[in-house]
Design a protein around this nucleic acid. Structure first.
Lengths: 195, 195
DNA sequence: CCAATAACTTGACACTGTGTCAATTGACAA
DNA sequence: TTGTCAATTGACACAGTGTCAAGTTATTGG
């Protein structure tokens, strides 16, 4: 392993990420992670009290690796509201496949594990802020359709862009990533941009 | 209990349904169901080999109770394609809250349990057929937007009307059921009906 | 009336995966 | 030397599912 000299915490994060991203995302157990990181299962608990806590840390690690904040923030550079909507869909939509392994594991825990649910919801709240910014920009341009209140428009965009929907459309329905992005953009325009 | 004279199998289904629908849908264990049905946990296994199998049976039982098929089929009576789209959204959209307890439990198992996943997917395939019928009716009227192929349009409608989306919009975003239905109809028109 | 059968009960147990606890080791530093 | 920190080993509690075996009860048919 090339990570022999990394601090243990980083070895754990790296190992978790590897297992989450390769494999199908199923069955990444604490023991599996420990083995991959080359430490004992108990050493894991020295660094992360629970599996949920570890998974949350992995999402943060992932964000740092991919520069999520910057990439999402980039959509704010767009001039018009419509461009900004497009840019946001581009940024977030192309981000989903990169985080999918981790997202899937967190999502699977969501229904049972309080901590995992909170962690996931917190991250989705960030996405919601991005959606809100895009919708607000549209409204400020006077281009937001009058069919929905601003809040409802945000609710809809946020729901449209959920990881679950991405999963259904790409993985289940077989859309290519490119198709996903273009269709989502077209959808968003039809729904939100004043005719 | 008023179900003393029911066959055991029905007592089990009834008890499962009760627990799934009341409670938050969490923690409906085999033991809980047995207790509620007034039988031993092991007797459950005499009727259903696994929890997944039981849950599937519950969905069928539920369908019979609510007359799902008839209600969904009713949307076929609509004359124009647009009316039919509306009618389908009405029928299915108002059906979701009734099955939500069971759906939630099945959905929570989906990620881990192969059998549960298959059962759920099979049921969602039925919904897809309904979506396909609505989209086809629209196309036959020459009213389907040319922005999407028929398959893609079905994919989109199907995804829009997913239980997960209903959950997010009503339970998380706080939409009323009425609001959900009207917004979904408006959304579908904007997206699918030729301008 | 006896015997077979089916439905059910009781209780013990295996298995998986998470999380806990305690005793121990090895390294490095004051 | 002593202290301390990170890690190790191994045992264990706990939940929940599913299995197994032996015993009970009621019904029914010869």
């Amino acid at each position: 392993m090339s990570s022999d000299k990394l601090p243990t915490r980083d070895k754990i994060l790296k190992a978790s990420l590897y297992l989450l991203e390769t494999g199908n995302g199923d069955g990444v157990r604490m023991g599996d992670i420990a083995k991959r990181a080359g430490i004992s299962r108990q050493a894991l608990y020295l660094h992360f009290a629970t599996r949920a806590e570890l998974l949350v840390a992995v999402t943060h690690y992932l964000d740092k690796l991919h520069g999520t904040d910057q990439r999402l923030a980039a959509s704010r550079a767009a001039k018009s509201g419509v461009e900004r909507l497009d840019a946001y869909i581009d940024a977030w939509g192309n981000f989903i496949p990169e985080i999918y392994g981790v997202a899937k594991a967190l999502l699977a825990m969501r229904d049972r594990d309080e901590a995992a649910a909170e962690a996931w919801d917190a991250r989705m709240q960030d996405v919601r802020h991005g959606c809100a910014a895009a919708i607000t920009a549209l409204r400020d341009d006077g281009m937001l359709s009058e069919d929905y209140s601003q809040t409802r428009a945000i609710d809809i965009l946020w729901t449209m862009l959920s990881v679950r929907n991405w999963q259904q459309l790409t993985i289940q329905c077989g859309w290519s990533q490119k198709e996903y992005i273009t269709h989502m953009k077209s959808l968003a325009r039809k729904v939100f941009v004043k005719a």
